[in-house]
Design a binder for these strands. Sequence first.
RNA 1: GCCGGGAUGGUGGAAUCGGUAGACACAAGAGACUUAAAAUCUCUCGGGCGCGAGCCCGUGCGGGUUCGAGUCCCGCUCCCGGCACCA
Length: 829
Amino acid sequence: MSQDRHESDSYNPAAVERKWQARWDEQGVNTWTDEQLRSARKPFYNLMMFPYPSAEGLHVGNIYAFTGADVYGRFKRLQGFDVFEPIGFDAFGIHSENFALKQGIHPSELIPRNVERFTRQLRRVGLMYDWSHTVDTTDPSYYRWTQWVFLQLYKHGLAEKKAAPVNWCPGCQTVLSNEQVVGGECERCGTPVEMRFLSQWFFRITDYVERLLENLKTLDWSEKTLKAQENWIGRSEGAEIEFPIARAKAADDRHAPAQVEAEKPVIRVFTTRPDTVFGATYMVLAPEHPLVDRVASPERREAVEAYRRQATAQDLVTRKKTDKTKTGVDTGGRAVNPATGKEIPVWIADYVLMEYGTGAIMAVPGHDERDFEFATAFGLPIVRVVAGEGDDASAPPAEACTGPGRLVNSGRFDGMEVEEAKRAITGWLAEKGLAKARVNYRLHDWTISRQRYWGPPIPILYCDACGTVPVPEDQLPVLLPAIADYKPDASGVSPLARHEEWYVTDCPSCGGKARRETDVSDTFLDSAWYFLRYPSANNAQVPFDPGLTKHWLPVDSYIGGNEHAVLHLLYARFVTMALHDMGLVAFEEPFVRFRAHGLIVKDGAKMSKSKGNVVVPDEFIAEWGADTFRTYLMFLGPYQEGGDFQEAGISGPYNFLTRLWGAVLSSVDRPLDDAVEQKLHATIAKVTEDLEVLSFNTAVAAMMEYLNLVRAGGRTPERAAVEPLVRLVAPFAPHAAEEMWERLGHPDSIFRTARWPDFDPAKAVADTVEFVVQVNGKLRARMPMPRGIAEAAARDAALADENVRKFLDGKQVRKTIFVPDRLLNLVVG
RNA sequence: GCCGGGAUGGUGGAAUCGGUAGACACAAGAGACUUAAAAUCUCUCGGGCGCGAGCCCGUGCGGGUUCGAGUCCCGCUCCCGGCACCA
C-alpha cells in the first residue's frame, strides 16, 4: 500500500512544511525563467531590503521584516499579479571585515559560510523567493557592475577626487561618510571620530539635492522616512553676505601684492537672518577657516595659533556638544558691517563649524542664543534690532530674542516686520554687491573611498603620463586580490597599498607604468543599485537588461527598516537619478512605494546580545513551525510599529491554525448558513483591505473571528465556509494552506491555481443591526433592528423602550439625531 | 531646542469622515467531554454599586467645542525615533 497517503489527520507542521518546501523547489513554483520574466503579463516587483549576512545568523527582526513583505507578495500573487520576489546578500563592508578580524578567519572564507547559513534559514521560513535570481555583492560577477556604476558616474563628472576634511575613525582606521557618523562617533564601533584632511573620492550628490528634496513630494513612502530624508538634506533659506576685512595684514601686501588684488578681502557668511544684520556686532570664523591667517593681527598671532591647535586636536564629539561652555579668541582683525558701516572685531571659536555654510558667521548676540552666550562670556556688545510686543527698543535684550517682531535700530528698515525685512535687507545689500539670496544644505557630497580591504576596488588608475585614468569597462572587474594581511593600519591608506604586485600595472592609455587606486568603495554603493540587478542577475553581459528593466522597474513595493531612511534610500535615489540622466533607466525614482516596518523588541527593550534578550528564531520554528511563527509575528502588533515578542502569545496563532486544520478536514458539502455567508463576505472584504495597507494584525484577527463563528458550538463546518478561508490564510501560513488546499481536492499549488476570493459587498452586511438608543448622548438601550430602518420607525421603537422612557422622564424631546443603522439620540431637557 | 510617532484592561493590541470603548489573542478562573491527560467545546474576565433589570465611573493630565469626544481644538506630562553649537 502506498505510503504517500496522509498518515495522520492531526496537524503536523514539520511534516507539512518539509513536504511543501520540497515541492515548491521541484516544481519551480516561486522561480522565474528569464523568458517568463520577459513575458510576464502583470509584473509586480516586490522588494525587501537584502540582509547583511552576519555570523549570528538571521534574527527575529529580519524574519519579521521579510515575512511582512512576503505576506504582501503572496497576497498580490493570489490576486493575479506576476510577483517577482528576489533576495540577496549585502556582504561587503566594514561590518563583515571587523567580524572576520575578530574571529581570525578571512572574510572570503567567512562570508560564504554565513551566506549559506542565511540561505538555509530563509528557506525554512517559507519565503516566496526566486532563488534563481539572487545577488551577492561580494561576487565578482556583481561587483564588476558596481565598478561599472562608479565609472558611469566618473564619466559624467559626478565622481571626483578632492582633498577634503573627512571623518576619520581611529577604531576602524578608515574614512566614514557623514551618514556613518552618529553623534560624533563611528556608527560601527563607537570610537570618537576625528577630522583629517585626505584626498578622497566623492560622489557629487549635492548636485541633485534640489531634486532629491523636490521628488519626495511625489513618493508614496512612510511619513517618518520622508521626514528623515528632509531633515537630512537640511535645506535652509537665507543670504550670503560679504563683510570686507578692515585691516589686511601688511606682510601679505608686501609679499604677494598681485594675489591680494585678485582676492577680494572679504569674509563671506551665510545667515538665515539677514534681517538682523544691523545687530551683527562681531564676527566668528571657524578655527580652520583659510582667512584666519589673513585677518589675525601680528600681536594676536600666537594666541590664535594656540587656540587653533587646541581646537583641531579636539575630537568632534566634544567639539559639537551644544552644552559646552563657549571658547574662542580675538584675532585682532576687524571687518566692516556692510549695513552699519562700522568696524567690528573678528574672532575665532570652535562653535562655528567649517563644514557648514561658509565656515564663518556674523554674530548677532541680541537674536541668537549661541552668539548671546558667547558675547556675554567675552564682553562683546549686544544690540537689539528686533522688538516684539512690549519690548523696549532702546535696551539690549536680556536674553537672545528669536521670536517675531519689528525691526529697530536698523536705519530705514525700522518698523518692518521680520519676514519682510529678510527680503528687503538682502535686496538692499545685493544692490551694493554685498549680498545674495542663498539656499544652504546640510547634505554634503558622498565620500565613497574606504581605506579598507573588504570592498570592491575603485576602478581607477594613476599614470605619471596620463594622470587619472578610468579602468576600461572591458577590463572589469578589478578583482579584489586574495591577501592574508588585510588588517587596516593607521597609515591612512588601504591594506591593498601594501601590495605592489597588485597595484602596479600598465596604463591602458599609454602602456606605461601606472598605479591602481588602492581604496575600495563604500558598501552603500553596492546596495545603491542592487534592485536594478535582480531581474538581470543571470546576465553576464550587462549590468541590467534594458528590456527587463523597463518591464519590471521601478520597484512596486519596497519594505525595510527605517534605519536606512537616510543612508541607503538616499543613495539609491541619487544613483537612480544619475543613471536616468545618462539615459540608462527611464525613471528617476527607484521605489514607488516604500513602507518602513517597526522593530521587534523583547520585554520592552531592543534585542541585543549584551542584554541577553535575543530571540533565536530557529528554535521557535522547530517547535511551532514556520507557519505559526509567521502568523504570530504578523499578529503581535501593527507591522509599521513593531511590537513586543512574547513567547506565551505564540500559542494563539498555533491554536488558530490547528482549529482551521480541523475545520477543513471535518468540513462537509452543505449550503452555507446565512450568518456564516454574511460573515464570510465581510471577512474577505476586511482581509483584502487590511493586506493592501499592511495591517496584518487586524487581518489575522478577522480570520480568527470568522473561524470562531464557523466552528461555534462545535458545529460541522461547510466546505464552502472553509475553502475561501484557506485562500485568505495562504499568505500567512503558505505550507499549511497548500496542504489543506490539496486535501480539499485541488491537485496543484494554491499559489498557481487559486484566486483571491471575491466578495459581494451586499452580502457582507447583516440584515439585522444592533441599534443603539441614546438619551442626551448616553446609551440607554440596544435593540436589534432591520438594516435600513427609517428614522420614524426607529423612534417609535425607542420610545416604546422602558429604560429609554425612564430617562426621558416625560420630558419633551427637543431634538433627535439619527445615524442610519447605528443610533438614535434623543435630546431632552 | 526643532521635526515625526505614541500613551487604551493583568498583557499584546482593536476601534479615529466624532456615533455601542476594550474586537482578536495571551494569561487567569470556572465548567462540559474523558478512567486520566492532551485535544476540543462552553462560560467569566476594566473598576465600583445592585438579587436583578440596570446605574455610576473609566482611553496619560487639565480645560474647551459638541446632542455625543479614545477620536477634534487649546495648554501640559511622560515615552520612542530622527535632526541638532546648522548660523
